[in-house]
């Protein structure tokens, strides 16, 4: 087995989709001749041609809406939005059309559309290129929202998303494109229904997704060295949330830290915490804790950006407090 990057895994997923189904085509800004802002689509134009690898003008609303329309007309479009910040220019199409038409038409139409969106902070690109707005999209009925955090999910979530008759948003965290892992040759698909336990443990549950999952795993290493066994759950399906897997872990560890790069107020972490409060309250031995993005527009300076993002040490500290409360606090 050879290791491949998350970027290469995304690319292989796209290539396979294009080979498998003639209805699949790609649209987005600089996905063709440029090779993709993050080089995910590099080489696909040469292999599949301009008809199926469509460079678009900087018209997010039009090409996302065109993806919805093409899906209505029987195609299986995969639309790339270069960064989640730009997706705001297409919000009308995503929220008012993609999310509503199946229900509003009484089930006459489905929108089998995949939107790939780069997301997240950490690249020193300041406030307008570092958002984590997955939680906003996860608020919208009619959408499905995925966040691959590992190479295997980056490789196989796309096929599952394409097989889904609904608009599926796949958020690829920009800090993950260069991570490498070996793919298990026995695995050829992943499910997009369930969260996944990435590390077993009995003392505290760490819930995260995207780059937050990577940081939660790093926090679990720190905790392990201190004799605290953290269970790390990759949420990975942000809508609909897999509440059952979350509650199962809560029942096991009885202590919870939720990691979310998004701002705390009104965040996905708030939703998860509330579901635990509603359905798992009596399984808890300690208050819920969250490690979220600081409530600031992302600053450019590295020390400030690092301070604004969830970091393994902060996650470990929150978990440590729950697993081994400081003396005098109980």
């Amino acid at each position: 087995m050879t290791a491949i990057t998350y970027r290469e895994a995304c690319r292989q997923g796209l290539r396979e989709a294009l080979i498998r189904d003639p209805r699949v085509f790609l649209m987005g800004e600089d996905i063709g001749r440029y090779g993709g802002c993050y080089a995910v689509t590099k080489g696909l134009l040469d292999e599949f041609g301009e008809e199926r690898i469509r460079d678009t003008p900087l018209s997010e609303s039009a090409y996302v809406g065109a993806g919805i329309g093409a899906a209505l007309a029987g195609m299986r479009p995969i639309v790339e939005i270069m960064t989640v910040n730009f997706s705001l220019l297409a919000l009308d199409q995503i929220v008012n059309n993609a999310a509503t038409i199946p229900h509003m038409s009484g089930g006459q139409f489905a929108i089998p559309l995949v939107l790939r969106i780069a997301t997240g902070g950490g690249r020193r690109v300041a406030a307008q290129h570092s958002h984590s707005l997955e939680g906003w999209y996860a608020h919208i009925p009619g959408l499905k929202v995925l966040a691959p955090a590992v190479v295997e999910d980056a490789r196989f979530m796309l096929a599952a998303a394409l097989a889904d008759p609904n608009p599926v948003l796949i958020f690829e965290h920009v800090m993950l494109y260069n991570i490498e892992a070996e793919l298990d040759p026995a695995v050829s698909e992943v499910d997009i229904e369930r969260a996944k336990v990435r590390r077993e443990g009995d003392d505290v549950s760490l819930f995260g997704y995207g780059n937050g999952l990577v940081k939660a795993l790093a926090a679990a290493e720190i905790l392990a060295a201190e004799g605290i066994a953290a269970e790390v759950v990759d949420l990975r399906v942000l809508r609909p949330l897999d509440t059952a897997t979350i509650l199962k872990s809560v029942a096991k560890t009885r202590r919870v830290v939720i990691v979310d790069e998004g701002w705390k107020s009104g965040s996905l972490s708030a939703e998860i915490g509330m579901r635990i409060a509603e359905e798992g309250f009596f399984d808890l031995d300690a208050p819920l804790r969250r490690v979220c993005g600081a409530e600031v527009p992302m600053p450019y300076a590295p020390h400030l950006e690092d301070a604004a993002l969830p970091q393994p040490q902060k996650i470990a500290a929150a978990a440590r407090d729950l697993a081994r409360p400081p003396k005098g606090s109980q």
């Binding site: 039009a62 809406g65 065109a66 329309g69 093409a70 007309a73 195609m75 009308d92 199409q93 059309n97």
Partner: peptide, 20 residues
């Protein structure tokens, strides 16, 4: 009900028909 919101859809339907 969104003024202008149908226009991108129409682009996509025309594109989908043409591609097929």
């Amino acid at each position: 009900a969104i003024v202008g919101g149908g226009l991108p859809l129409a682009v996509g339907i025309a594109l989908g028909d043409k591609m097929q």
